[in-house]
Amino acid sequence: MKSSLRNLAIILGAAAALIALVAAVLFWPASNDGFILDTGFSGDTKITLTTTSPVEKSLLVPQNFTAFEENDPDIQMHPVKVKQKLSGGKNVLSLTFDAPLNRANPHIVKTVPLTSDSPALSLRVEQSYLGHLLFILISALLINNYVFTKYLGLCVFFGTSKRKKTATGMGIVFTIVMLASAIMSWFAYRYVLIPFHLDFLQVVVFIGLVSLSVQAVDTILRKVNPVLFKSFGVFLVLVIANCIIIAVPLYMASNQYNLLETVMLALGAAGGFLLALYLMSSVRERLDLAPIPESFKGLPIAFITAGQFALAFLGFSGLQLI
């Protein structure tokens, strides 16, 4: 049991690492060749451009720089201040604007030729995609933890958090099914529901896909690893009674996520569930030994513990990664 658990954890960890690596390779912000090394936001009102060599002082005037949001090309902004600073062998231009920038939208910065041999530049400034994905993951894991801040999946949560062993088992099985069903849901939503205007069938299609993936995992596990199936099989039926598994595809649909974002959301949601289960079971194992008033024994004290966790998780809100 113990070794099979560890094996599974290793497999899961490897899968997550692989996904992160692929994401990193695919979406690492490509450096603009030549003069500009890097672009980015800094603070609420600043855009920074890193260049290979210093720019002549006379060019550093606000009129030489224009910025706009990619979706609103007709709203052009000029910085109020342009500064140049040499830091660590790199030359950094910082453009300060008078209003806060909406960093969720990519911005385009246009400049006049900044050196004698370079053309006028048009640069795309956006938050790094990897950071964005990481934010979705952390957000679903901690900031918007589905159990402690969205109050979903509670029946299964209270049912399987009595012992650490059952808690981790449930969490791992849930993670696998969650990933499988979220990916299938994304394909169904993107290639069937949207093109045929069948948006109103979301609930039926998503719950159908969840049952399908539960069935698939059941069959595969039974054939491939009967030992593992013996210890985890019981949890499979419980997965479908967990609201989180249906909330994630619905959330994905309402936010129009792409595949990679969906995978991150599913990993975060399932990981958050696993984390919540593990924390809760650790406490409940100890609570068994504590002197609790008779009427509070069992579920009531578990609810109050969960409430305290929820209060603690409230502290994550407002956490900003980027």
Binding site: P293, S295, P300, F303, A306, G307, A310
Partner: peptide
């Protein structure tokens, strides 16, 4: 009215019903 208070209220009410039953 805070979101997390739901846990406390449900827990306390369950305990209350248990107490009455007892």
């Amino acid at each position: 009215i805070l979101p997390c208070a739901g846990f406390f209220v449900v827990g306390l009410m369950m305990a209350f019903f248990n107490w009455i039953e007892q």
